[in-house]
Design a protein around this nucleic acid. Structure first.
Lengths: 119, 119
DNA sequence: TTCAATACTCACTATCGGGTAAGTATTGAC
DNA sequence: GTCAATACTTACCCGATAGTGAGTATTGAA
């Protein structure tokens, strides 16, 4: 299998950041973990409606490998695994904030356009 | 053909911004146009070593449709077409800046790691 | 004995982004 | 008549990304 080929060389900072954050659910995982602090696998799955189990663990593994999140396993039955953000994950989330603001403004523009069109 | 299906609905601002900026060369195109102000098609192609003509115009068309760039055609022979950033494009570039900084720090971390490993 | 609960793991398939390479249109210079 | 220069356009292919659905391991409860 082995996804994850990149990890550089990168042509610029944006490229390096994108490599880590590109993936259908990664920014949402980042947001969930930032919002809740600590999240079990099943909680994440239920918190991201539509995510497949395969993609969820694949993304979690890659983000762990990239040093964005921490994975804590409790040897219990039934098993318990808790995910949280590392410092790098937190700072990435901060760095994404302006982009989120820009995106929300874009949404508003699109909504306004749509309203004008459908009027 | 028709790429470009999204344009919402988006689940959050990051999602909306990512939809617009995801594409192998888009952030670089943004940077080129921000850096030079005005850029012809051929200049962009030469400024982005490795880009294929197909991907370049595809990205340019999508970015124009998304309101990020302006396309000015001069009816001359041989033809001349100049691209530039719109206000939205400029603000997107601003919003991407912290991400670029984060990415550069990540590059430095990776380099340090690599140095330690190869030592 | 069977089931529930949790967190995966695996095989198969489909879709999409991107690469390659050739072709188009226009007109002035040679 | 042919070529150069520019900005595309088109057809075909490939690999990466993502979806589907079934299977695994453990142990306490019913």
């Amino acid at each position: 299998m082995r996804s994850r080929a990149r990890r550089g060389p990168y042509i610029c900072g944006i490229d390096a950041a994108m490599d880590v954050v590109s993936g259908k659910w990664k920014s949402l995982i980042l947001w969930e973990l930032d919002n809740y602090g600590l999240r079990r696998y099943g909680e994440l799955r239920r918190g991201l409606p539509g995510v497949s189990e395969k993609m969820l663990i694949q993304h979690l593994r890659e983000m762990e490998e990239d040093g964005l999140i921490h994975r804590e396993v409790y040897r219990e039955v039934p098993p318990r695994v808790e995910y949280s953000l590392t410092e790098h994950g937190k700072s990435l989330n901060e760095a994404l904030r302006p982009l989120g603001v820009w995106g929300r403004e874009r949404c508003e523009r699109l909504a306004a356009e749509g309203a004008r069109v459908s009027a």
